[in-house]
Design a protein around this nucleic acid. Structure first.
Lengths: 142, 142
DNA sequence: GTTGAAAATAGGAATATTCCTATTTAGGGG
DNA sequence: CCCCTAAATAGGAATATTCCTATTTTCAAC
């Protein structure tokens, strides 16, 4: 598993121990090209670790999101998770629920100035866009 | 209830009916000066409407968030809701969990250009900042 | 390799959230 | 004011998520 190699390093650097469960969860996330729900991950992870508990999965998704190794995206029908390999943001279609990843990041010092004025130390940010995707937009207009 | 008057108009304009439950939920949100959890709202709403179901509360929080009358903010320990009287964004402290409202909005056409390039029709956006608030920042450094 | 402390896990209990459906209600039209 | 239809609700079932605790595991020091 190459993909997860550097991710595992981040985990250890953040002071978390490397367990079999974590390794499998990360590998499983890596295998999915689209953001997946906790339950979808659970079913997949159980193939390799039949005795893993739901608690362990949820706890680790929380950890991975906390150290920014994974992204948590709000979509109708439950949150979804994906490995955060490159920093980016998302667009969620309000009609079909599809999630699109956006290239680049439009958040710079300008966008954080108000927080800085208030003496807040901004370490992370997350921008969620929503509306209609190309397909749904046309259906709506047509 | 003055606060909720215009909000109720938005609800009706969006095609939703005005029910007693919705009125109470909106009034209850208006009474809270800080973002509250669904369960906190449930307990408060039940004082006026003892027989309201959890389903009705959750369904309406979803509706209110959808038509942007309420904001849904992710905080450890569950999502929180607040009336969205003026468009703004939030900062969440990773240590104490406190939520700060930020004045103004730093998202403009520039920040949406990538989405527009991809033929996505952006109707809404949400920016979440996180890090350390003034208090926790000092504790950490001290 | 062995040992010990702290962190992590499994499993089940407790909560929270969502789903389903029969019944009720809001609001427009007559 | 009465009727009608679509939308909304209550209540309970089904899921999903979190909490708790005894036991296991990681990993650093020896």
């Amino acid at each position: 598993m190459n993909v997860s190699h550097e991710i595992i390093q981040v985990l250890k650097d953040s002071g978390y121990k490397l367990t079999r469960q974590r390794r499998v969860i990360i590998d499983t996330l890596a295998k999915n090209s689209k953001p997946v729900t906790a339950q979808e991950i659970f079913l997949q992870v159980r193939k390799d670790l039949p005795s893993i508990s739901q608690d362990t999965l949820y706890r680790n998704l929380e950890v991975l999101a906390f150290i920014r190794v994974a992204n948590r995206i709000r979509v109708r029908g439950g949150d979804r998770f994906e490995l955060a390999e490159h920093h980016h943001h998302h667009f969620v279609c309000l009609k079909c629920g599809d999630v699109k990843c956006l290239k680049g990041c439009p958040i710079g010092p300008q966008q954080l100035s108000e927080a800085n004025k208030n003496n807040l130390e901004v370490l992370y940010h997350n921008l969620e866009l929503s509306g209609y995707c190309e397909k749904c937009r046309h259906r709506r207009e047509g």
